[in-house]
Simulated assay, not measured.
Amino acid sequence: MTDALLLGGIEAGGTKFLCAIADRDGSTLMQTRIPTTTPAQTLGAASAFFSEAARQHGPLSAFSIGSFGPLSLNTVASDYGCITSTPKAGWQNVDLLAHFRRTISAPMALDTDVNCAAVGERLFGSGQGLDTFCYVTVGTGIGVGLLINGAPHGGANHPEVGHIKLPRAPGDDRFAGICPYHGDCLEGLACGPAMQARWGVPAETLPSDHPAWAIEADYLAGLCATLTYTVRPDRIIIGGGVMQPQMYGRVRRALSEKLAGYDASMRSIDMDDYVAAPTAGSSAGLTGALALAYRTATRQWPMHWAITETPSSRAETVNA
């Protein structure tokens, strides 16, 4: 590892791509925000950004992407590196790694956006000091990142916990759900677009005493109970646009009811600490992607980094 270590990272989301390069200390040298439109336009703009970054700062030492999915993360699969059966129009079967390998000659890594956000939370947010925790995002979809023994969990492929089936919440027997694959899976019932489809307005515009929030809390508590019983994490961090501040108390109370006093170790859970809000800031996913690039280059996590919410004052924004 040298002082010239140069890292590239992308947080690839359904509405925007955040691209950046950083030095070995995690200080951002350049960054840009690119609207997610067509693959050709979006990936082309991202490639142009990294080409300009290389011209100004030199070649990358490692490069990582934290992307929306589903993704193929099994390195022996024929479609490794691809976005697969995403509901985002036009992005099915897009090969992310192949695209960037044509212009970037550096070791590469790919993981889910939620796993990268979980890495960011472990470094700088609500996951600090924890080796095993879950990061949940509730927004356009529902995704769950798992850090186990300090590293993102993969297995045969990444988890798709947002598509589990849960018992219907009281008072929610008639809504069909919006998932194009499963209808009334968790995401089909409880993501932001599902709430809008059920109630006719965006979730964030609903008053805090609206019955929507009790239904939403029941589904998210069901998710937390499932994660508790299967993963037994030290903490469950829940973020995303649907998680209004008043939701945390609702989810904690509903989770306590669902666990029903089972097992002494679960009875001792401090719900205020166990179900937590993210605190690493809106750049957690990009920070996690850059950290994954660091790990790809050095085989260790950058525990010495001191990034908080925003990029370093040395950052230069380029509109690709």
Score class of each variant (00 low, 15 high):
A276P: 11
I269H: 01
P311M: 00
R295I: 08
A291R: 03
S312E: 11
R267T: 02
A221V: 02
E160L: 13
G162K: 02
I307Y: 06
K258A: 01
A77M: 08
G127R: 08
F100G: 12
A293N: 05
A89H: 08
I148K: 02
V275W: 04
M266V: 03
I236D: 09
L7I: 04
A12E: 02
D3G: 14
A203P: 08
H182Q: 12
D25P: 07
P35N: 13
R267W: 01
G249Y: 14
A117V: 04
T298F: 10
L71M: 05
G8P: 08
Q246E: 06
T228D: 09
L97P: 09
A260W: 12
G26L: 14
E257L: 11
I148E: 02
R122K: 14
S313K: 14
I142L: 13
V136S: 03
L227H: 02
G281F: 03
D79W: 04
P170L: 01
A320T: 01
M247G: 13
A12G: 13
M271E: 02
P311K: 00
I236L: 15
T228H: 12
A194Q: 00
D131F: 04
T296A: 10
S313Y: 09
P278E: 02
V275I: 12
Y135V: 00
G13A: 08
C191V: 03
A277E: 15
I10E: 13
T38W: 05
V94Q: 01
G261F: 06
I237W: 01
A225Y: 13
R24A: 07
R33A: 01
N115I: 06
H153S: 14
L6P: 06
R168A: 00
S268F: 11
C185M: 04
R295L: 09
A277W: 14
L146M: 13
E160H: 10
G240T: 10
W199Y: 09
L96I: 14
S67G: 14
D173Y: 05
A214H: 07
G141F: 06
P107Y: 10
D273N: 13
T103R: 11
A40M: 05
I237P: 02
Q246H: 10
D172A: 00
